[in-house]
């Protein structure tokens, strides 16, 4: 049971994988997304995305700029102008 996470930039599809949890720096504050999150849309401030591949694992950090996040039944999609 995992969350499907995609990180997309105009240049390429950076990530598309199953993860446990992702913490996104939203404009109004950070939010964590787990599997089964309610449908949600937010703009993303410039900052770091934390990706937890499993519960309790050390997070992988990817800096993003100019982004937007969408959670729907298929998972979490982050669109960013710059990532990595």
């Amino acid at each position: 049971m995992a969350l499907h996470f995609e990180l997309v930039t105009p240049e390429k599809l950076v990530r598309s994988e199953e993860v446990y949890q992702v913490v996104v720096p939203g404009t109004d504050g950070d939010f964590g997304v787990l599997e089964g999150h309610a449908p949600f849309m937010s703009t993303v401030r410039d900052g770091n995305i934390q990706i937890f591949s499993s519960a309790g694992a050390a997070p992988e950090v990817i800096p993003v700029e100019g982004g937007f996040a969408e959670v729907n039944e298929k998972g979490l999609t982050v669109l960013a102008e710059k990532a990595g």
């Binding site: 939203g26 404009t27 109004d28 309610a38 449908p39 949600f40 849309m41 937010s42 703009t43 729907n72």
Partner: peptide, 9 residues
């Protein structure tokens, strides 16, 4: 997008 989507801001 279902009507239940939350938006922030």
């Amino acid at each position: 997008i279902a009507a239940t989507v939350e938006y922030e801001p």
